[in-house]
């Protein structure tokens, strides 16, 4: 028989966990945008210069969005960057009023989010300076480039749209 009596009852060591833990921000979820960090750096370089671009397949001529490294249509990898129009139409839209995920801290509800049809491609984008009740499918919108402040050692950029005036 082994001795199973509690050998140190009354003077147990205590460990504790804090009520709240602050974790370092290991990642912020925008792409790191330079040449040594992503194979689609040209998209971001062009955005910085004021141009919205994406890849087109040199073999099957499919235009993709987001920019790709391999063509998902024909599986070819001979791609080139082409300019996209800076004006498009609302394909469908919603106004986000609640249910905002943690971590989307750059968005304050309510805001309008849409699938924007640029002709060759559609993309998801936030529509600034707009509210749901004032918009209709097909309304014209235009590009607005924003700069991202955040924990990266280089300037980063993203796109939004605004109603065309």
């Amino acid at each position: 028989m082994t001795d199973t009596t509690d050998s140190n009852s009354g003077k147990r060591e205590r460990i504790s966990v804090p009520e709240e833990i602050e974790l370092p921000r290991l990642l912020d979820f925008y792409d790191l945008q330079t040449e040594d960090q992503t194979q689609i750096h040209e998209f971001y370089d062009n955005l910085q210069e004021g141009q919205l671009t994406t890849t087109q397949c040199c073999d099957c001529e499919e235009i993709h969005f987001p920019p790709r490294i391999v063509c998902p249509e024909c599986t070819g990898d001979n791609l080139e960057y082409v300019e996209l129009p800076h004006e498009g139409e609302l394909f469908a839209f919603s106004e986000v009023r609640g249910g905002l995920p943690l971590g989307l801290s750059e968005h304050d509800v309510p805001y309008v989010v849409a699938a924007v049809d640029l002709g060759p491609i559609k993309l998801s984008a936030r529509i600034d300076d707009a509210s749901y009740g004032d918009l209709e499918i097909g309304d014209p919108v235009e590009l607005k480039i924003v700069e991202i402040d955040g924990p990266a050692d280089h300037k980063r950029f993203f796109y939004r749209f605004v109603p065309q005036r």
């Binding site: 249910g99 805001y111 849409a114 993309l123 998801s124 993203f158 939004r160």
Partner: peptide
């Protein structure tokens, strides 16, 4: 797609709303 939908403000209910 976290980079091209969620960063653009697309939530899960938002996508079904569209």
């Amino acid at each position: 797609d976290d980079l091209w939908e969620v960063r653009a403000g697309m939530t899960f209910p938002g996508a079904y709303a569209l």
